[in-house]
């Protein structure tokens, strides 16, 4: 399982990468692996505002479906149309090309509620 050091993670397996007040959001390697072949991605519209841990997007695979929750509050400024056209991109490259949305974050201190890479790795290992 791949976990990137510079990213932060949620208990629901989203990652967020914050640079100044803009953040990129996606799902982790653990999540894409658990879902299997992803067949469909539904993303929010640009301009949508979300609270931390509010439902943001949904992802379907052949046998599973999952909601993606917003790791931090903010406004959507860009969505990755490539993962809508080619959902498998998330399976192939969940941390780079398979990103879902870019967010203008509203409350940087919400980071404290997220996990760092080491913590997240431990968390995943303890899941059965």
């Amino acid at each position: 399982m791949e976990v990137l050091d510079s990213y932060l993670y949620t208990h629901e397996h989203e990652w967020i990468h914050v640079e100044d007040n803009v953040a990129t959001v996606g799902i982790s390697d653990y999540a894409q692996n658990a879902l299997g072949d992803i067949t469909f991605t539904e993303l929010p519209e640009v301009g949508g505002e979300f609270e931390q841990f509010e439902q943001l997007a949904s992802i379907e695979s052949v046998k599973a479906a999952t909601d993606v929750y917003c790791p931090m509050s903010g406004k959507v400024i860009e969505v990755n149309s490539e993962v809508v056209d080619d959902p498998e991109l998330i399976n192939r490259d969940c941390y780079e090309k398979g990103w879902l949305i870019k967010l203008e974050i509203a409350a940087p201190d919400e980071k404290s509620k997220l996990m760092k890479a080491v913590e997240y790795t431990n968390y995943c290992e303890n899941l059965s």
């Binding site: 067949t39 469909f40 379907e60 046998k63 599973a64 479906a65 909601d67």
Partner: peptide
Amino acid sequence: TLQAREQHIRREK
């Protein structure tokens, strides 16, 4: 197909 919409997978959603 598209079974992910259905109750046996999504349950309450």
